[in-house]
Amino acid sequence: MKLSIKGPRLTVRFVEDDDSMENWNKLPSWKEATAIWQEKDRCKDTQIEKAYVQLHIKMQRMANGARLRNPDHFNTEADLPDKKKFYAIKQGKMRAYGWFSNAEKGVFIVSHFAYKKGRKLDPEDTKRVVDNWKVIERGGL
């Protein structure tokens, strides 16, 4: 997984990274989420670029061992099958959903990116996180 964001405390990895991407902003779910954002809000490319930077520096901050305390930046979302939680790294309506791995300590796995359409967590996003969790945590990285 070459798109890892590494720090002294944590490594952030991406489920969708198949080593063919040069940057996580090329991952399918990010492209899909930004396309929805553009369609819904007619956002500009500069806003997408800014969201990319903001999410990256938040992930880097986590990797460096600093907590994201601001609920606008990081939030607990819902249960995983093992009753632990999954989380959202947030920037505006853009989300990076993920969990702290049990299979590999010190790793935060980003399941996927999404554009949050409503106020509540979309069950589709929960399902996608849980499905990815099952593959990664029960099947190994």
Partner: peptide, 12 residues
């Protein structure tokens, strides 16, 4: 990157 990092640091 400098701007956004600074904003993140201050708000955090």
């Amino acid at each position: 990157v400098v701007e956004e990092s600074f904003i993140l640091d201050v708000t955090e």
